[in-house]
C-alpha cells in the first residue's frame, strides 16, 4: 500500500500516525507540507530514517522546490520523486491511502 502524507510534522501528528500503523514493505510519499519531514537535520529526521529502513519513503520534488528545498539534503534512505514518479508509485502498489 502507498501511504500519502501532506501535513507538516510540526503542525499535526499525521506522519506519526502513518509511520506507527503502516505495514513494513509499504511505501510513504510525503507531499505538500509533508515534504518538510523528509529534510535532513530536523527534529523528526531520526524517526524518518528508522522508517526508511522498513519501508520505501519518498518526497515529492515539486513540493520541495516550491518551498526552497530543491537542493536540501534529505534524510538518509529517503528518495525524491516527481509527479511522474508519484503516478508510477500509485500503480506499483495495490492501493493508495491518504492520511488526512
Amino acid at each position: 500500500m502507498l501511504h500519502l502524507v501532506n501535513r507538516s510534522p510540526f503542525e499535526e501528528r499525521t506522519i506519526d500516525a502513518c509511520l506507527r500503523v503502516a505495514a513494513p514493505g509499504s511505501a510513504v510519499l510525503l507531499y505538500e507540507d509533508g515534504v518538510y519531514a523528509g529534510v535532513r537535520g530536523t527534529g523528526v529526521a531520526g524517526r524518518l530514517e528508522a522508517a526508511a529502513r522498513e519501508m520505501r519513503v519518498c518526497v515529492l520534488e515539486e513540493d520541495l522546490a516550491a518551498r526552497g528545498l530543491q537542493d536540501a539534503a534529505l534524510v538518509p534512505g529517503v528518495h525524491r520523486v516527481d509527479y511522474d514518479g508519484f503516478v508510477e508509485l500509485a500503480i506499483e502498489y495495490d492501493s493508495v491511502t491518504t492520511w488526512r
Binding site: 507531499y31 505538500e32 508519484f86 503516478v87 500509485a90 488526512r100
Partner: peptide, 22 residues
C-alpha cells in the same frame, strides 16, 4: 477533499491528473 483557500489539495490533484493522463 480540501478547499483551495485552505490547502493545496486541488492543485496536487490537478498535477497528478495531468501526469496520469500524459
Amino acid at each position: 477533499s480540501e478547499g483551495p483557500a485552505q490547502r493545496q489539495s486541488a492543485e496536487s490533484a490537478y498535477h497528478f491528473a495531468q501526469a496520469a493522463l500524459a
